[in-house]
């Protein structure tokens, strides 16, 4: 009983801000600053969303599309490369392994905000200003991902399985593909979710390298907040709509992620 109660409270706390976001996005501007705040939805959702998509200068739909595309590509790439490298670091012996792992760990400690100007220099050289490549390519690998996959592979992939496959004459990549990757699925699903969210929420770098005519979703929202800063419910609608794709990804794949975790348990 205590368990259920604790979980219920945790879920209520988790969900409340999202619920409240939805409530305000369905209201008209006159609720701003009211006390007590509105707690039930109103009738204005479609009106607010309509104004959102009509908003000049924000290019909201394009921003959503750009973010969806780049987040998807980055996610697939990060999961693939991270599980590959994580497997190597966890299960394969090779000279320089620990040193290389330390380097990867070290790269996580670089403060991201400072890289903007040198990264922009590179993009100028490559001619990628205002193009999605600038968002996608530097993010194709992730130190966090390698580290996460390594930690996970250590526990989740039994050495005997790898040995058995080797005895059967599998190449190392074959072993990765047929033995390791399936065992890594829960971890990979978690990493995929985090990577997608991370790319979707990225703000500073897209702002630096893109222009408002080819934005990402957070960039669009920022544009919205200046031109329409006084339009409170419009901002709420924007924040809500920008969360919907994440929720969709979550509902579609969340079951798989959680299912994957369960499956990993059975195998281990």
């Amino acid at each position: 009983m205590m368990v259920r109660l604790t979980l219920a409270v945790a879920i209520a706390l988790s969900a409340f801000p999202l619920y409240w976001l939805f409530v305000v996005a369905t209201r008209a501007n006159d609720v701003v600053g009211d006390w007590p705040p509105p707690l039930l939805p109103g009738p204005n959702l479609w009106d607010n969303v309509g104004r959102l998509f009509d908003a000049e200068q924000a290019n909201f739909l394009l921003g959503m599309g750009n973010s969806a595309l780049s987040s998807a590509v980055v996610t697939v790439s990060v999961v693939f490369f991270s599980s590959l490298a994580g497997f190597a670091f966890a299960k394969l012996r090779f000279r320089g392994r620990n040193a290389l792992l330390l380097v990867i760990l070290g790269t996580m400690m670089i403060p991201v905000q400072m890289g903007i100007i040198p990264l922009y220099l590179i993009m100028v050289e490559l001619g990628w200003q205002n193009r999605l490549e600038a968002i996608i390519v530097p993010s194709l690998v992730s130190a966090f991902g390698v580290f996460l996959m390594r930690q996970y592979a250590e526990k989740a992939v039994p050495d005997e399985l790898i040995e058995a496959a080797r005895v059967d004459g599998c190449s190392t990549f074959r072993i990765y593909w047929t033995v390791v990757l399936p065992a890594l699925r829960p971890g990979a699903a978690v990493l995929g979710l985090f990577t997608f969210m991370g790319t979707w929420n990225e703000f500073l770098w897209p702002l630096a390298v893109l222009e408002a005519d080819n934005p990402t979703v957070q960039f669009s929202l920022s544009q919205l907040s200046t031109t329409y800063y006084t339009d409170y419910t419009l901002m709420f609608a924007g924040a809500l709509v920008s969360t919907v794709p994440l929720l969709v990804v979550f509902v579609l794949f969340g079951r798989q992620i959680i299912g994957g975790i369960m499956e990993g348990a059975i195998k281990a």
Binding site: I11, S14, A15, P17, L18, L21, L193, F194, M197, W200, N201, F203, V217, Q218, L221, G238, A239, L240, S242, T243, L246, L247, V249, F250
Partner: peptide, 9 residues
């Protein structure tokens, strides 16, 4: 749920 919330929200 909080993980899948847009930072703007």
């Amino acid at each position: 749920l909080p993980i899948v919330t847009s930072v703007a929200a």
